Amino acid sequence: MKMKVEIITPVYYKKPDFITGESEKRKQYLFKCAACGAELGIDFQKQIQNCWTGKTDEVTDREHEELKAHYGIGSSNKSHEGGLPVFDKVACTPCSGQYYTYSGVNEFSNSTFTVQIQGIAKDGK
């Protein structure tokens, strides 16, 4: 899998972008399309809902395996900050660009989650 532009690359420690109960007003992580500048978003609840499968429905099984290899997710299946990795795909409607996203989701208490955006990369197709 070839990535054209890496907007965010993984780090082992960063503050969560979302915390259940503390940042409920923020529904999405917003970023700009590298090609046209349109505002795009990663839905935090969608990442949490898919933390046990590791991917959303927009990501194929093949893409999932390639993304795990690209980001160095090993056999322990842990994201860089220690949570569960979730991969998603976000489309830019104005320019038809495709972005793969990588989030680390951590359930630190019963049904209480943090989400850290660990990677955003434009598809190199």
Rank of each mutant, 00 (worst) to 15 (best):
H64D: 05
C36P: 03
D61A: 09
Q47I: 02
K46L: 03
F44M: 05
M3H: 07
I117T: 10
N50L: 01
K32I: 01
Q49I: 01
I42V: 09
V90K: 12
V59A: 01
S109F: 09
I42S: 02
S111E: 13
V11E: 15
E6G: 00
D43P: 00
K15H: 11
E24A: 07
R26I: 02
G83V: 03
Y12N: 14
Y12G: 11
G119R: 07
Q116F: 02
N106F: 14
Y102P: 07
G37L: 03
C95E: 13
F108Y: 15
K125N: 07
Q116C: 05
E58L: 06
C92W: 12
V90I: 15
Y102G: 04
E39D: 06
R62L: 06
A69V: 07
M3D: 04
T114A: 07
M3T: 13
G74E: 12
L30D: 08
P16A: 14
D123K: 14
F113H: 15
F108R: 15
D123V: 04
V115N: 11
K89W: 01
I73Y: 06
G97M: 14
P16Y: 11
I8F: 09
A121W: 06
G82E: 13
K27R: 14
K46G: 00
G74Y: 05
Y13C: 05
W52P: 00
D88Y: 02
E107N: 14
A38Y: 07
T56V: 01
W52I: 06
K55P: 00
I8G: 03
P10V: 12
C33E: 14
C51Y: 14
I117F: 04
Q118R: 14
V115I: 12
D57L: 04
F87N: 06
P10K: 15
P10Q: 10
H64M: 03
V86S: 08
S109K: 15
S111P: 00
A69H: 04
I120G: 05
Y29T: 09
A69F: 02
F44N: 11
I42N: 03
Y71V: 01
K4S: 05
I7V: 14
T53D: 11
Y71K: 07
A91G: 08
I8Y: 08
L67R: 12
K89F: 00
Q49E: 15
F113A: 03
S76Q: 10
P85T: 12
Q28V: 10
S76I: 02
T114M: 08
V105W: 09
I117Q: 09
D123S: 05
A35S: 09
D57I: 03
Y99Q: 08
F31S: 08
V90R: 12
K89G: 00
D88N: 15
N110L: 11
V86D: 08
D88Q: 09
T53N: 11
K78E: 07
R26C: 00
K68I: 02
E6P: 00
P94L: 05
K4Q: 11
